[in-house]
Design a protein around this nucleic acid. Sequence first.
DNA 1: CAACTATATGACCATATGGTTATATTGCCA
DNA 2: TGGCAATATAACCATATGGTCATATAGTTG
Lengths: 126, 126
Amino acid sequence: MRGGMAGKKRSAALSTAAIEMIASRFRTLGEPLRIRIIQELESGEKTVSQIVGAVGSTQPNVSKHLRLLQEAGIVGRRQEGNLVYCYVSDDSVLHLCDAVCTSLGERLGRDARVAAELNRGMGRRR
Amino acid sequence: MRGGMAGKKRSAALSTAAIEMIASRFRTLGEPLRIRIIQELESGEKTVSQIVGAVGSTQPNVSKHLRLLQEAGIVGRRQEGNLVYCYVSDDSVLHLCDAVCTSLGERLGRDARVAAELNRGMGRRR
DNA sequence: CAACTATATGACCATATGGTTATATTGCCA
DNA sequence: TGGCAATATAACCATATGGTCATATAGTTG
């Protein structure tokens, strides 16, 4: 048995490595621009330029964030000639985003205008 | 191709405010210590001291993170005499954590030892 | 009241990271 | 081949944030 905390009866705590992996995934999603990018890719793959145009940031910046998303296994890419098409390679993050939208929307309730947006989700109605 | 930004035929993009709220929630969960704290509270409310002892950090640090979690509406507190009992006030974050555990576990597959842990989840499935 | 415990807060530092600018790389085409 | 377009990379800076230490506050008990 690992985890040498002298006998505690709780369900075994996750290892530091596991915890870090979980936190890391959340951290990757913790940037507005990356959420924007993901939302943009939700409707299908797009080239880097298209993403740049859609999210309103600079090309190097988007490129950097795309690399992070790729390294996190969230986004994949496919090169075609001079163009690089990006796509969401892990659908679970879409569910995560949707779950957050829902819970935030519920919390805000009817008083806030943002709530409607959030309740509408990130586009993946079905 | 130029920047033609007219393409809003798909689901309308979320407002900056909404995006920021979503990212903010993820960002709050993007810290290992906060994940640890949440996991610790999963089995029921605990005092600050208990949490400090369980997660292996300093009291001021835990206090600071607890405040963040509280401001994010993730953790609530109940004071009883000198003690402050903390608890998870938003169950949706537990589902988020679980979802992340699952997807990470799946991705790692059987080769990694961490996968088993992750697949076991954060403890909530009794 | 004093002394002790539990928790919060403030100041501080070190580091990580987002954004920018400039430049490199790669592929296409005339 | 030269030159242009798409993307990546590097260097850099400003800021946000986690951790620590010292201290303040509040509640309890003698």
